[in-house]
Design a binder for these strands. Sequence first.
DNA 1: AATGCCTACAACCGCCAACGC
DNA 2: CGCGTTGGCGGTTGTAGGCAT
Length: 276
Amino acid sequence: MGRAPCCDKANVKRGPWSPEEDAKLKEYIEKHGTGRNWIALPQKAGLRRCGKSCRLRWLNYLRPNIRHGEFSDDEDRIICSLFATMGSRWSLIATHLSGRTDNDIKNYWNTKLKKKLMGIVPSSSHKRSLHLPMTSSPISLLHTPNISSIASANNTILQAQEGYVGPTHRHQMKDRNTLIFGGEASCSSSYNGEDVGMHSYLYNGVDESQRLMFSSGGNADGYFGQKSTNGLYGETLTGYSGIGEIEQLISASNVCNNVNLFVDENKTDEKVMYYY
DNA sequence: AATGCCTACAACCGCCAACGC
DNA sequence: CGCGTTGGCGGTTGTAGGCAT
């Protein structure tokens, strides 16, 4: 026995909403409210639509004070920051952006912001071409069943840099609550305020006051308020809430074809995991 | 001009927690 | 307390329009 359908799919209209349907729904809700019963609403409103579809249409497009259109830089920052701390909790993120819906934010993230943060926006003027030599054969990230278990079980050192890695550029999982950054910022000077790579996205997109993740992130000048130049840097972090964020961000990076992962077997005193 | 590809985004699907009986 | 129903949510899909070839 499967789950009972929420409506009779054979008798409901699907696809884009017509202006007439919008008007009917809007008029009904403005007059009677939703009654906290979306399933019964379409029949009362004279609509041949599924209740869930009515709810979605109202919440995302018809209710008052909805804003559509371009996202501002401030909104970008808020979304990035919240995504880094809470992940894809779009409805929660939407509560921080007045007039924006979770669906809008989700779509914006999936189509534009994620790519922008990964530094793969086609309009970007620079190309990252620096690839440091690898010391062992890469294993596709896609073939790695559970990156968090690998990382936590081995007290892993995670080494990451968008587009490339270098052996001295690493982030150490001291324990589940502390992450140590350190090493040489070997990234290309072609980073700039707009082209923030995965690295800076990984570790800068949170409120500093929460003492979560933080990094100098190469030359990601100012985008998240932290500036560094090429050279040595390191940070000890407390309050890091776990490997989940890293897993999440690596998972998000699957949009890039060049994301791979391998474990350096040559290390005897520590496990080193790279992705690039 | 025709075709194929890509992007953006509206809408749908299915899971799950909350709620009420 | 158990069960059915509903709302809410995140992930995914469908498709229109724009762009490249």
